[in-house]
């Protein structure tokens, strides 16, 4: 789950970079940048959840 969270974070950043490099219109860029940031928050949530489960188990 940790690895998945980290991969989602990096994937979100990849979407942001790709949007900048490949899309010509500002509206399209904005949409994909927002999608990338949303994916990053999903990754952050997953990473946090993975550590939270671990912490609760360890005490």
């Amino acid at each position: 789950m940790k690895l998945a969270g980290l991969l989602l974070l990096v994937a979100g950043w990849g979407i942001v970079l790709s949007a900048l490099a490949l899309l010509p219109s500002q509206i399209g860029r904005a949409g994909f940048v927002l999608a990338g940031v949303a994916l990053e928050f999903l990754g952050l949530a997953l990473l946090t959840y993975a550590h939270s489960v671990l912490n609760t188990e360890k005490g």
Partner: peptide, 8 residues
């Protein structure tokens, strides 16, 4: 984009 780079 700056914030996305920090997080991602």
């Amino acid at each position: 984009v700056g914030i996305a780079t920090l997080l991602g």
